[in-house]
Design a protein around this nucleic acid. Structure first.
Length: 322
DNA sequence: AAAATCAGCAACCGCTCGGTA
DNA sequence: GTACCGAGCGGTTGCTGATTT
């Protein structure tokens, strides 16, 4: 037996919304709010629409401060970085981009961003293979696609951040920041140091957790991490997007209790994702025929190498977790 | 100029999750 | 403890305008 439909499809209007319907819905919600009951709302508002349809229309189109149109490089980066970290959780990604809806981002990814990456990656991969570059194909692709972020983004001081070292992509950082503050503070400078296990962990500096607009090394994005030291000492400066709004299970796990120094784990392992070893850039031949998963894995691999810095010199090609 | 193809996006569908009786 | 219900989410569909043949 199937689930009962949420509304009577025979009496409910479907398809595109007319301006009149938009006006009715907008007027009703502005006057009365949603009342936390989308099912009853269309009837109260005098609309012959399904409650779900009303909700969708409001959230994706009529809600105030909705941004439509071109996505900026900054938004592209946020989407790519978060997609690599958490996958297709569009609502979470949308929460990081004020004015953007999950539907918008999803459409944008599927129609443009994915293709953009696909178009550039093959060339970048072959280049990195030719030059045995330390820069991953996706890093190169990202640099190619996205110009550096402007340094004039206002950055009021951030609250202190936890100081322990972490083995997680900082894109998964659960921050107490408000949405607005988070947006105003898209960058956070972290120092990474190689630890004794061969992995490199984050070392957040709680006392100096600000990133003023005048700081020249505020190069947000995992794909544009700058190597702050020599390749031998592997001291790396890393700038990240303070991610918040994730569930408890996604919270950072301190290195001391986490993956034992051999991997990047998330929560109780529920979000642990295996990245196929043979997708590791530079390790094996990579074809230009990328599918959705391949792109994700490539990005993930990139995140692993630039955000987690978990490449184990002794076990090259071993599965990487994040 | 017309037909075919492509791309973008709004909207729908069905599932999961959380709250509650 | 469980069944039910509504909200929310992500995947998919289908319409429409743009572009190509």
């Amino acid at each position: 037996m199937g689930r009962a439909p949420c509304c009577d499809k025979a009496t409910v209007k479907r398809g595109p919304w007319s301006p009149e319907e938009d006006a009715m819905l907008k007027e009703y919600i502005e006057k009365h709010g949603t009342g936390g009951n989308w099912i009853a709302l269309p009837q109260n508002a005098g609309l012959r629409r399904c409650g779900k349809s009303c909700r969708l229309r409001w959230l994706n189109y009529l809600r105030p401060n909705i941004k439509h149109g071109d996505f900026t490089d900054f938004e592209d980066r946020v989407i790519c970085t978060l997609y690599a970290s958490i996958g297709s959780r569009w609502s979470v990604i949308a929460a990081q981009l004020p004015g953007r809806t999950d539907n918008d981002i999803k459409n944008y990814w599927n129609t443009k961003l994915k293709k953009k990456l696909m178009a550039v990656l093959p060339a970048m991969i072959s280049q990195s293979q030719r030059t045995a570059s330390l820069v991953s194909p996706l890093q190169a692709a990202s640099s190619f696609l996205f110009s550096p972020l402007p340094h004039h983004i206002p950055s009021p001081p951030l609250p202190s951040l936890p100081s322990p070292s972490y083995y997680l992509p900082l894109a998964l950082q659960s921050s107490p920041l408000t949405h607005e503050i988070s947006f105003e503070n898209p960058m956070q400078h972290y120092q990474l140091q190689k630890d004794g296990s061969g992995s490199i962990a984050y070392g957040g500096s709680s006392g100096d957790g600000t990133c003023s607009s005048s700081e020249a090394n505020c190069n947000f994005s995992s794909t544009s991490s700058t190597v702050g030291g020599t390749s031998s000492d592997r001291s790396v400066s890393y700038d990240f997007y303070p991610y918040h709004g994730v569930e408890e299970k996604e919270n950072l796990v301190p290195a001391s209790s986490g993956g034992g120094g051999s991997g990047c784990t998330v929560g109780g392992g529920e979000w642990t994702q295996k990245v196929a070893a043979d997708k590791a850039w530079g390790e094996n031949a990579v074809t230009a025929d990328y599918g959705f998963e391949e792109i994700k894995q490539l990005i993930s691999t990139n995140i692993s190498t630039t955000s987690c810095f978990l490449f184990d010199e002794n076990k090259v090609g071993e599965s990487v977790y994040y």
